[in-house]
């Protein structure tokens, strides 16, 4: 589609450098309607990468749609969810994606944006969808534990062995939730075999929380007519403007 005209999909190939670190990403679709669902991802990033980059890479590596942002840079969707609205008003507050920094003991509500935050292996990034949040630290934090060691256990090991595809345990606190597991060290798009074995279907399949298909968030293909007509009209108006200006001058 349109995006393909500009080249490769965003976030496809972060440069692999010596200074790669594993970043833990937690995404929770929330428990608003009693339908909690979440997944955790571990992704390798070069040292300069931002949290926003890590999130994109993590989703794309899973074959999920990359996050979308509003023109002002506010995160609108993760994995295509929600399919409409961006920070829209909801009864009792706003429905939006809240952003948290993890730590050894708890999640803290972020005061910065994912694009300004340098990804830190010790600080997992947490995303929780708030169906009626307030846009301040009183909004509920992710249910999952906040420490890197609990999300991506293998990286916490002192040796930091890169080639141990280990499944994460399901934390006891996330009762009754189907979660994804990740292969900790090879989650990047270089596509090591284990990554391919971790399909999207591992994400919870409860209908209400299922991430929308990529096609749902993008404008449908074949509607370039609107663009073309508008560009033609723009050209016409500019021509009229130029002709009128010339005539006034002469």
């Amino acid at each position: 589609m349109a995006a393909s005209l500009f080249g490769a999909a965003p976030g496809a190939a972060p440069a692999l450098g010596a200074a790669e670190r594993t970043i833990a990403v937690v995404v929770e679709f929330g428990s608003g309607q009693g339908l909690p669902a979440s997944f955790a991802l571990c992704v390798k990033e070069p040292s300069g990468a931002t949290d926003a980059q890590a999130l994109t890479d993590a989703l794309v590596s899973r074959g999920l749609p990359a996050p979308t942002y509003s023109s002002a840079g506010l995160l609108c969707t993760i994995a295509g969810y929600p399919s409409t609205g961006c920070g829209a008003r909801a009864p009792g507050g706003y429905s939006y994606w809240a952003y948290f920094h993890g730590g050894s003991s708890r999640w803290t509500y972020a005061t910065d944006g994912p694009a300004e935050r340098r990804a830190d292996p010790a600080v997992p990034e947490g995303w929780r969808f708030e169906p009626s949040g307030h846009g301040n630290p009183s909004d509920a934090a992710p249910d999952r534990p906040s420490a890197t060691a609990s999300i991506c256990p293998s990286t916490a090991s002192p040796a930091n062995q890169p080639a141990s595809p280990a499944s994460t345990t399901i934390p006891p606190s996330t009762v009754g939730v189907t979660t994804t597991t990740t292969s900790a060290s090879t989650a990047t798009t270089t596509m090591a075999p284990p990554a391919a074995t971790v399909p999207v279907t591992r994400v919870t399949d409860r209908t209400a929380e299922r991430p929308a298909a990529p096609a749902a968030v993008r404008p449908s293909a074949g509607s370039l007519t609107g663009t073309m007509v508008a560009v033609a009209a723009l050209g016409l108006l500019i021509t009229i403007g130029v002709v009128l200006t010339r005539r006034r001058r002469s």
Partner: peptide, 25 residues
């Protein structure tokens, strides 16, 4: 159609002008 007046470069896509928006012009 929210997508006709709000446009964001993330993800990249061609901006659309729907007939209603065109009528505004």
């Amino acid at each position: 159609d929210a997508s006709s007046i709000t446009w964001s470069p993330w993800p990249l896509s061609w901006p659309q002008v729907t007939p209603l928006a065109f009528a505004a012009v």
